[in-house]
Amino acid sequence: MTGAWLRSREAGVAGLILLTVAAVGTINPRFLSVENARDILIAASPGLIVACGATLVIVLGEIDISMGALMGVCAAVLGKLVSAEHAGLPVWLATLIVLSLAAGIGLINGLLVTVARVPSIIATLGMLTILTGVGDLLMAGETIGGFPDSLRAFAIGHVGMLPMPVLVALACLAAFTVLTRETALGRRIYAVGSNAHAARLAGLPALRLKVLAFTLTGLLTGVATLISAPQLEVIEAGFGRQFELFVVTAVVVGGASMSGGAGSIAGSALGVLLLSLVRTALIFLQLGIGATYWERAIQGGFILAAVLADHVSRRRRVQR
């Protein structure tokens, strides 16, 4: 049992994280501070939250790339609703509206994919493009500030040692781990993802599961916006741009397969952590100003190495 886990993708990514932390920590011990760990976790929490939904979608053999633009729209709507300079609605009402909006967009994605049979990459690419434009129009070239204190306190507050966003992320991770591992619903999702045809013959409601996964991803994107947008005093157009790229890359690094059926919440969470570490690690290495220009290449190389190494080792196992 332990032996099998050690050879799993999760163990590989966890090992890579430990290796990175150890290496950077040796060179610059300040990297190992509690403060730094806390900041990295806070920065990673929107990714952790949305990755839960994205993992379900990818396990089902679909993909969602509309999250970043949806986040921008949610942030703009949230700002317009709660800010005293705009609508000035009570926080609970604004939160409700933003979450319903996010879930609603997710639902539309799901219906486009299932009922209208538009391939998911196309449906969500179209949604990404549309929402980017809508977000820009909503912001109308202004900054939106003046989040009420209660919302600010929620986004930057603590419960004991734990920052609020991290707490929300942990709750999501726990809920989705239970969902995927312990419930019949979770088993059905994997069954549909690994063999859609057999699942259909067995009478599993593949379409409904897919609609659910897309709706949840939308809802979680709304949650991620609620914990991250009020961390800033003012928001500007472009909030969340390219977030989808980050989440999909992280889920893939965490071992999910693009053909469906494989992937886990734990793996995706580790993928998010690994990718969140890289930029911070590069700053703590203090490589000097010239090295800044190579950062993106190093990040890309890191992703490439993680993905290729896993496939090479997996192939070797299969051949053996």
Binding site: L245, V248, V252, M258, S259, Y293, A297, I303, L304
Partner: peptide, 27 residues
């Protein structure tokens, strides 16, 4: 040859190629 899904390979090289372009030209 490595049989990695093209979406995954090119998602990684999307970052890597531009990174190398930034690196060798210093922006």
């Amino acid at each position: 040859w490595l049989r990695v899904h093209p979406l995954i390979v090119t998602l990684a090289t999307l970052a890597a190629f531009r990174g190398v372009a930034e690196g060798i030209s210093l922006g």
